[in-house]
Nucleic acid binder design. Sequence first.
DNA 1: CAATTGATGAGACAAGGTCTTATATTTGTG
DNA 2: CACAAATATAAGACCTTGTCTCATCAATTG
Lengths: 154, 154
Amino acid sequence: MTHAHDETAPVDWAERASERLALAGYRRGGARHNLIRLLAAQRCALSAAELQEALAHEQRSVSRASVYRILEELERAELVARIEVGQGIVRFEPIRHGAGHHHHLVCDHCGRLIPFSDEGLERELERVSERVPLVVAEHDVILRGECAACSEHA
Amino acid sequence: MTHAHDETAPVDWAERASERLALAGYRRGGARHNLIRLLAAQRCALSAAELQEALAHEQRSVSRASVYRILEELERAELVARIEVGQGIVRFEPIRHGAGHHHHLVCDHCGRLIPFSDEGLERELERVSERVPLVVAEHDVILRGECAACSEHA
DNA sequence: CAATTGATGAGACAAGGTCTTATATTTGTG
DNA sequence: CACAAATATAAGACCTTGTCTCATCAATTG
């Protein structure tokens, strides 16, 4: 089944993330708490700059260094995924199990990022991953083109 | 069939690129000529900085602005693909038809980029592309993990 | 609650990428 | 073939993203 997915975000990602970081020996600082809270509320990927801005905007400023450091910790703990797409911008998003796993459509015209998922594609990726000279840990699929809104305006 | 591919690069990509740009109304400047010539000789993606450096090294310097401008022209003409992979590095490579089409393996450890191709995966991507709310022009698949060399050293 | 150790913020720094402008080249025309 | 018009290019200022260091601050532990 292929579809733009729109399940509501599981609420417990934040808990899972905090717990796993704590187990890994990290302390529960304010910056970490705020950033995890913000990430948990997102449906799709945000850039580091957008994250910092959003935090500042809600009176919970976190320094740039902390944003990057915490994102790196989360990435290493496989709690967030790094997505690189269009214009060299790097974005980050929470990794959720099963239902939340998705890939991205990118509109070359307006830059919009749209999540989608497809089971057949996943199976194919797993198959390919085992026939390749690399121990595969992650995969990314990006489809680029023109989104519905932009096609209409044309 | 899945394999690290190593066909020799078709020689005529440079001609095709020059022609198509000329038809699009661009003049034939030296910078453009040199950059196209260099790209045509590549098997896999290079970053803008690597391209500029390579040109300088062979006494055919092209300014940074020109490198980016020309890459943008080539990208719009669908003659080069932009590949974003690890650490926010953007790389560019010529788009060739059929045999040359490939995707990328990235070693998270040493950053090495390895091309691969797989027919089944292509078919699957085509299928998915038609079931998605976007008119798909291109696709990218990136598999990340640890390459053979890095696994050994571990 | 004091000491220790890790977390954070501030800002210097580096690299990648964009933009402007003066100069050099290409191309069309007489 | 020379000239004019228009585009291409180089150089470098500038901005944005991401990294690093260090002084300060807060969470833990006994």
